[in-house]
Simulated assay, not measured.
Amino acid sequence: MKLGAAFCSSAILLFILHATICAWGYDPSPLQDFCVAIDDPNHYNSAVFVNGKFCKDPKLVKAEDFLFQGLNIPGNTNNKQGSNVTLINVDRIPGLNTLGISLARLDYAPYGLNPPHMHPRGTEILVVVEGSLLVGFVTSNPDNKLFTKVLYKGDVFVFPIGLIHFQFNVGHGPALAFAGLSSQNPGTITIANAVFGSKPPISLDVLTKAFQVDEKVIEALQMQFA
């Protein structure tokens, strides 16, 4: 009986541990009600580095620390891609610090594109408010399978953390979407910018071999993203 009870207790402990690991977010779990971000002027003169932001004294916290105004204002889509992302992360709302969430407004001109990119620290859930969008994401190696769908007003789509994804306005008019991300600072790596616009540039030998194209093609692409 004792052996059976011990086995049962171990099994329960393993289950709780597994559930805890699965529930753990990509941002540190908060240990207090809030941790309003503040820049420490002495931070860069010390040997201590923080994975995130310092916390303001709770006695000095104000309602404004949890507020952002102006997300109703359309973003400027007058650019090569015809899109604009207004990201509301911990840098815009200090009260998001340690809470593991952020928000974005995405504006698209007709046939505007939010180019292939990834968020290294957050899953994205997107809802279309106006217009229609062709969206998709690609799985990791070796399959590189494309999951794609045309979304309309009220449709919701999820882009898993770290996977390359995109949105393209396939309508004749402007489109609008909002996205939630599972990080206070999800980060964005736009694939073309990172590959062809890195500073300093990636070696031509590396890129010509990787993309199996002539060196002049790579040079032209690097000039576009320099």
Rank of each mutant, 00 (worst) to 15 (best):
V156L: 13
E124D: 06
F34C: 09
G4F: 12
A19Q: 14
F34G: 05
M223Y: 15
N78G: 08
F159T: 03
G70N: 06
Y152E: 12
T86A: 09
S9E: 14
N72S: 15
F34E: 09
V138T: 09
P120N: 02
D91T: 14
I21F: 11
K62E: 12
P201I: 11
F54W: 15
S140W: 00
C35G: 04
H119N: 09
N72H: 15
N169H: 02
P186Y: 02
L146G: 02
K199N: 13
Y26R: 08
T123Q: 07
I101W: 06
D27A: 09
V85S: 06
L99V: 06
G173I: 07
A177M: 04
F196P: 01
N45P: 02
L133Y: 04
S9G: 08
N72T: 12
A6S: 13
Q184K: 03
F225H: 05
E130G: 03
A177N: 01
I88Q: 03
F225E: 02
P30G: 03
G100A: 07
N45T: 12
A6Q: 14
D205L: 11
Y108D: 01
S183R: 00
K145E: 11
S9T: 13
K59T: 13
F34Q: 07
C55D: 09
N144H: 12
R92Y: 10
I16L: 14
P201T: 10
S10R: 13
K53P: 01
E124P: 01
G25S: 12
R121C: 05
E219R: 14
N141E: 14
F137C: 03
L151Q: 04
L3W: 10
K56H: 06
A104P: 03
E124I: 03
G75Y: 08
C8R: 06
N89R: 10
N169S: 04
E124S: 06
H43R: 12
G82F: 06
C8A: 15
F7T: 12
D27P: 02
A194T: 15
G197V: 10
N193M: 07
Q224L: 15
E215L: 10
T148M: 10
